[in-house]
Simulated scan of single mutants.
Amino acid sequence: MKKDDVPQDNSKSYQGQNKLLYAVDDSGHYQGVKSSGWEIESFATQLAVDDLNEQTAQALEQALRGEISPLAYHMLARRFDIATLAGASGFFQWQIKRHLRPAIFAKLSDKNINRYCDTLKISRDALLSLPSQ
């Protein structure tokens, strides 16, 4: 992309910030250029955020019905998936999948609950409960 073609669409997802992109200047060299956003990128970002919000709402409903543990809701509400939560918490993915089952989650030790609290940056009471709809 040429330096003069870098999008400046004032994307609301940038929240007034700029993003550094690299573009080719007139002499053919790469140069850093600030961009205020790109309409297409903003649209794709909004679709992804809407999808994450939908997944979080579904997890809350399932957790309120007792089909999955509160961990599933809190994980998604803080934009983690099983792989990223495993990497951040030190649990294996298979362990987290087990902890998403209410009966297993209810038996977790204080040490394991605290690991989740530290990783998700929430209190013990918050992790063990769910917000009301």
Results as ranks from 00 to 15, higher is better:
Asp5Pro: 01
Tyr30Trp: 11
Gly32Phe: 09
Ser27Asn: 13
Lys3Ala: 10
Val49Leu: 07
Tyr22Arg: 10
Ser35Arg: 05
Leu47Gln: 15
Asp25Leu: 09
Lys3Glu: 15
Val49Glu: 02
Tyr14Trp: 10
Val24Ser: 06
Gly32Trp: 08
Ser35Ile: 02
Leu52Trp: 13
Gln8Tyr: 07
Val49Asn: 00
Gln15Asn: 04
Asp9Pro: 02
Pro7Asp: 11
Leu47Phe: 11
Tyr14Gln: 12
Ser42Met: 07
Lys34Cys: 05
Ser11Cys: 15
Asn53Pro: 00
Gly16Thr: 10
Asn18Val: 12
Tyr14His: 14
Ser11Arg: 01
Gln15Val: 00
Asp4Lys: 11
His29Ala: 09
Gly28Ser: 06
Asp51Lys: 13
Ala44Thr: 10
Ser27Tyr: 12
Lys34Met: 12
Phe43Gln: 05
Glu39Asn: 03
Glu39Asp: 09
Tyr22Thr: 01
Gly37Trp: 09
Asp4Gly: 05
Asn53Trp: 01
Asp9Ala: 08
Gly28Trp: 04
Trp38Ser: 11
Glu39Tyr: 04
Ala23Asp: 04
Ala44Arg: 10
Val49Asp: 01
Asp9Trp: 06
Ser42Ile: 02
Pro7Tyr: 07
Ala44Lys: 08
Asn10Ala: 06
Tyr30Phe: 12
Ile40Tyr: 13
Thr45Asp: 00
Asn53Ser: 09
Leu52Arg: 11
Glu39Trp: 04
Glu41His: 00
Leu52Phe: 04
Gln46Phe: 05
Leu21Ala: 08
Leu52Asn: 12
His29Phe: 12
Gln31Ala: 07
Pro7Ala: 11
Val33Met: 05
Ser13Met: 13
Asn18Trp: 06
Gln8Lys: 10
Gly16Phe: 03
Asp25Trp: 10
Lys12Ser: 14
Glu41Tyr: 00
Ala23Arg: 04
Leu20Arg: 11
Trp38Met: 02
Leu21Asp: 05
Tyr14Pro: 03
Thr45Ser: 01
Asn10Leu: 02
Asp25Arg: 08
